[in-house]
Design a protein around this nucleic acid. Structure first.
Length: 290
DNA sequence: ACCCAGGCGGGCG
DNA sequence: CGCCCGCATGGG
């Protein structure tokens, strides 16, 4: 049985989704000139075409996992209409039409965003891949062959040595990763809290060593699907101040209030479009609008 | 050679 | 509470 979810072009874009600095970005190298993209999902290899249709991966479970991962069943045009409050976001939507917010597993999201602190996207990808190769569980294709290695769980990493993680390129984040792995394999079951609301989840996440306000928001958004979360990194702070406050400095608290009031339950979607467009275009946009 | 990167925890006033 | 500092390390 093969997935036949019908998706119009422009409503789902595989490249923008996979490359927009979300967890999937860090799991492998993807060649978008190919017809299909393969990636690890819950220990299995899944192959999808450019419209997100499943090519490899049998059964209703895989189909449901893929739909959930890409938020396929949401009406992206409705989301666009609700976050299109201004020209900046409209420009981003035009440029990155079909970029979906992904809904990943809580732990893999935690791992990736602990690595993200004071780091760059390229190095996060490199380090994640090394951790997957060294510590990850095998990934099986639809015939049961081992075709790669997935994201290691907290159990695998909790017994790792600091120097071994550092040899994977984690840098000073190694101690945070081990501490988080121990905590999440003993004190905190990340799956257990998934039914809680955004605020409660964020509070729980911030108890993890190495997880602060920004990383907790990233995990809430991309690991738990809490679309009202609005992670504020250096880019978002700089961009929101420039685009919406005439270049005046604003505190994270003020920015959170602004985002909540402006985009409400979809603030996280707005954040992703501001972030990804702003990173590439902010210089030209700012100079044009000053 | 220098500078930066999807922040965080700890120490200080 | 707010502010400031150090932090591993590959790439520009």
């Amino acid at each position: 049985m093969r997935g036949r979810t019908q998706i119009e072009a422009g409503k789902f874009d595989i490249m923008h989704t996979f490359e927009s600095a979300q967890p999937l970005t860090f799991f492998g190298d993807y060649d978008y000139s190919r017809k299909e993209i393969k990636y690890p999902l819950m220990g299995r290899q899944v192959r999808v075409d450019r419209l997100g249709r499943i090519v490899e991966g049998k059964g209703a479970t895989v189909k449901a996992d893929v739909a959930r991962r890409f938020r396929i069943n949401e009406d992206i045009r409705e989301i666009y209409s609700r976050i299109s409050t201004d020209d900046f976001i409209r420009s981003s939507i035009k440029e990155y039409a079909g970029m979906r917010l992904t809904h990943n597993l809580p732990w893999e999201t935690t791992l990736v965003f602990i690595l993200s602190q004071f780091n760059n996207v390229k190095r996060i990808r490199m380090t994640t891949k090394k951790l997957m190769e060294r510590y990850g569980d095998p990934v099986l294709d639809s015939e049961g062959n081992v075709v790669g290695s997935g994201v290691p769980g907290p159990e695998e990493l909790s017994s790792a040595k600091v120097e071994d993680l550092m040899s994977c390129g984690t840098g000073f984040r190694a101690k945070y990763l081990i501490s988080a792995a121990k905590y999440c394999s003993s004190s905190l079951d990340l799956d257990r809290i998934s039914a809680n609301d955004y605020s409660a989840i964020k509070d729980e996440l911030m108890e993890i060593d190495g997880v602060g306000d920004k990383v907790a928001d990233c995990i809430a958004l991309m690991g738990y699907g809490k679309l009202e979360a609005f992670p504020i990194d250096t880019w978002i702070k700089r961009l929101v101040e420039a685009v919406y406050f005439g270049g005046k400095k604003r505190s994270p608290k003020q920015i959170h209030e602004f985002a909540s009031e402006r985009w409400g339950a979809l603030a996280g979607y707005a954040q992703q479009y501001i972030f990804w467009y702003g990173r590439s275009r902010w210089k030209t946009w700012i100079s044009k609008n000053r």
